[in-house]
Design a protein around this nucleic acid. Structure first.
Lengths: 340, 340
DNA sequence: GAGATTATGAGGTACGTAAATCAGAAATTT
DNA sequence: AAATTTCTGATTTACGTACCTCATAATCTC
């Protein structure tokens, strides 16, 4: 039989009340007694029954998710996952609020964070913009005892407890590797389209991609990076312009959103399609992969990110450690053959 | 406040006992009354508090995992994950037994299954061998009311409730795609090494690989498949022989275990290394990826497989549905750049 | 060593569900 | 309409932990 608090009490020769005081770090136990109890816990291998503890506590975790209201499918998926987690709230003892803020809008994000500081939940998850105004507000939240997690796009470490997202430098390098390998010995130009270089994740992807492609395919001519603001129409226009200006274009890496523009522009290219690599699996990119329009998709699973953020926030709120390895978000590579 | 069973009783105008009978499918409730209760449940949006229910039931699930005692690192990892799950048993209300059987040994596996039939647990997970003797025993287990999951290597559907593993046909196709793309326009021979074609998963990988490579790189000469019995020494010998017999060898796909042999043989090849693709990430294959000896690793996460198997077995034992999408095991592609 | 302070014990209630008993009401059969 | 069977209600105990109160024991202070 699994040992219970009663067993600890018997084993340590103390009362249930004392065991409770030790287990829940309540005051009023002499150091010697506390030690006796802790030894008894080790000896009989007691593990707290979390289900029973939660039941007794009937605690709920108030959590807030601040996510841009961009209409790209990744952010949409992220919001959907928050909504799904909201529904599970009754089971998981969470009370989740979704706060949508305009994309790329630093003042709006700052204002949303200010509102949270006034009425602080137990934890906050934010798709961050890398700016001092945001950083300082995150630090303020943490000082108020709020657990803080950045989602997708990170900040300096002092502003958050944890980052729930992929290593974007590695993602860029992966894209560079695939581009180099898929191009083989061909020579020509490769275009890179970012959303905004003000986003830490986009900057990192660009850096990784340039580095790795330079190593693996030094003969490739990497064009000046273009910024689309994650707008499909701009992606399409930028890519059309690149094709016109560089007839030897043989590869495209869209490291931000706006894949609709990519998929629209690719069939307009003359001759063989360039090798195309993009981020985030959606119905659109899935179809483009299946049709051979896009060659590889790098993906971060929004469901994993949201669930991981929730686990981390709950653990932080309780002052419990997180298992780092378990919370690492993977960089998925999808070809047309291993689609889920 | 979250509704409880008491709220259902009040809302439906019945007693707690009747609510309990409906919720737990106990007999003795007229259809009309049952309907009233179910409507009340829907109306107030009741969701069973699993923690409280488990606490009250204080049920534990006896589960058995039958896994080959091969010394390759994937099976080792699988066993380690079972051991880890065993330790979590107290928390998750499982009582897990790990049964190691000799690899590729059909009679030994059959005997292990017979022992389980005599003393049936609530659920069994098996790395299956595709043979009638195994199939029939699995069916017998299911008839005895035992939940059955196949792990890694599948069987005909009548022998199991669920398969916790990757789609090996898709994995083979993925390997074929990568091989074709990495070889680019080069011409030459490609070798495939399987563990044993008696394993369903190895057969599937071979089929997928051949198909896809034929589509994408029709000029490649695919050598006759070789069988290594997952023995590193045989992998090494087979590959050395292939290099000797086919000086134009430009690619190798090891679709089974024994990567130690692959890594040993590759540096012995003359000229440029062939493109090498293998399965399962380990410290060995990780290092080979980093060193550029292996070009890509396809991986299935043993931790996910074990945890998924446990979830499915528990759900089956309770007659609850499983969310298929959640239990799908992904085909991970690792390059040196996106290693976890 | 009286008084103040701090540790500890004893015992209870609560969380939400499961599961059991037993009595009585309702429906069905004869 | 009586006898039987089938439903339903009322009530209780249990699961393991949290948290509270009140009483008593141990320790410290002057």
């Amino acid at each position: 039989m699994k040992p219970t608090v009663h067993d600890i009490a018997r084993e340590a020769g103390v009362s249930l009340a004392t065991v409770d005081r030790v287990l829940n770090r309540r005051p009023g136990v002499r150091a010697a007694t506390r030690k006796r109890v802790e030894e008894a816990i080790d000896r009989i291998g007691f593990v707290r029954d979390v289900a029973a503890a939660n039941l007794a506590k009937s605690r709920t975790y108030a959590l807030a998710f601040v996510i841009p209201e961009s209409d790209n499918s990744f952010m949409q998926a992220l919001r959907d996952e928050v909504a799904a987690a909201r529904l599970r709230g009754a089971l998981e003892r969470t009370d989740i609020r979704l706060i949508a803020v305009p994309a790329f809008d630093e003042p709006a994000l700052a204002q949303a964070l200010d509102a949270l500081i006034d009425n602080p939940p137990a934890g906050v998850a934010v798709v961050a913009i890398d700016a001092p105004a945001i950083q300082s507000r995150m630090e303020r939240l943490r000082q108020a005892g709020v657990a803080v997690v950045t989602l997708v796009s990170d900040l300096a470490a002092s502003g958050r407890d944890h980052f729930a997202g992929i290593d974007n430098l590695a993602a860029g390098r992966t894209a560079g590797s695939l581009m180099g390998r898929f191009l083989g010995s061909r020579a020509g130009a490769v275009a890179v389209i970012a959303g905004s270089l003000r986003l830490g994740d986009h900057r990192d992807r660009l850096t990784g991609f340039s580095e790795r492609l330079g190593e693996i395919a030094p003969d490739i001519r990497l064009l000046e990076v273009m910024e689309s603001q994650d707008d499909p129409a701009r992606v399409e226009a930028l890519l059309n312009a690149a094709c016109r200006d560089h007839p030897d274009l043989i590869g495209v890496y869209n490291l931000g959103a706006g894949n609709r523009g990519l998929v629209a522009a690719l069939p307009q290219t003359t001759g063989e399609y360039p090798v195309a690599i993009a981020h985030e699996l959606s119905s659109l990119t899935r179809k483009a992969l299946e049709d051979g329009l896009i060659d590889a998709i790098l993906n971060q699973d929004p469901g994993h990110e949201i669930r991981s953020a929730i686990r981390v926030l709950k653990a932080r709120a309780d002052g419990l450690p997180v298992i780092a390895a378990q919370e690492r978000i993977r960089i998925d590579i999808f070809l047309k053959d291993n689609l889920p």
